[in-house]
């Protein structure tokens, strides 16, 4: 564990909690892509199946359970509790166009051809593109609420910090995981356009379509 990794995890946690609280407090999930949230729930579910097979640390186990729990709570709020406020008309990204190629790729390029490992690989690839429905929704509606942009910022910062974590681990531990690194770079690049707008425009962000 290094400072980049810890800060990355906390930024990820902050993003998830910001989103949950936003929906809960405003009693509305307007402007939030339910499809991205379904993809994140799928990402956590397929990645953290190792909760059942290996123990790494108390920190690791707790964070995994919190991430999974929050992901499903968010999906529940969007599709059940505050369904009436859900922006279904604009949330029209076809997630099968992400899931099918990502599923195929995880069968072809993985560290080990075993069920758990393929699912882990699937989750890494899927996470890298899971934000696309959300960015698509913002480009369709033309703007995002301030709190939504904070959520996206934290989510982008999380993967960027992981990149520094991997550089650190390569130098000090000789460890590198090519699949995670390549996917992490792709994921961070997807946020770059957003980062630029967040920093220059501050408050309200509109992604030009």
């Amino acid at each position: 564990m290094n400072i980049f990794r810890l800060a990355g995890d906390l930024s990820h946690l902050a993003a998830i909690i910001i989103l949950l609280l936003k929906i809960w407090k405003t009693r509305s999930c307007a402007g939030i892509s339910g499809k991205s949230q379904i993809l994140f729930a799928l990402v956590f579910t397929t990645r953290y199946l190792d909760l059942l097979t290996s123990f790494i640390s108390l920190y690791n186990t707790c964070m995994k359970i919190i991430y999974i729990g929050c992901a499903y709570a968010t999906v529940h709020l969007i599709y059940m509790k505050f369904k009436a406020t859900y922006d279904g008309n604009h949330d029209t990204f076809r997630i099968e166009f992400l899931i099918v190629p990502v599923g195929g790729l995880s069968f072809l390029v993985n560290h080990d051809f075993s069920p758990l490992e393929i699912l882990w690989t699937f989750s890494i690839y899927l996470e890298s593109v899971a934000i696309l429905p959300q960015l698509f929704l913002i480009s369709k509606t033309g703007e995002a609420e301030t709190i939504t942009t904070h959520y996206l910022f934290c989510l982008g910062v999380y993967r960027a910090l992981y990149l520094f974590n991997w550089i650190w681990r390569f130098y000090f531990e000789g460890f590198f995981d090519m699949i995670a690194i390549v996917a992490g770079v792709v994921q961070t690049i997807l946020y770059c356009d957003f980062f630029y707008l967040y920093v220059t425009k501050g408050e309200k962000v509109a992604i030009p379509s």
Binding site: R47, D50, H111, G174, D177
Partner: peptide
């Protein structure tokens, strides 16, 4: 270490 199955990151 490349590609271990026991992943310690989140």
């Amino acid at each position: 270490i490349i590609g271990r199955t026991r992943h310690d990151e989140l």
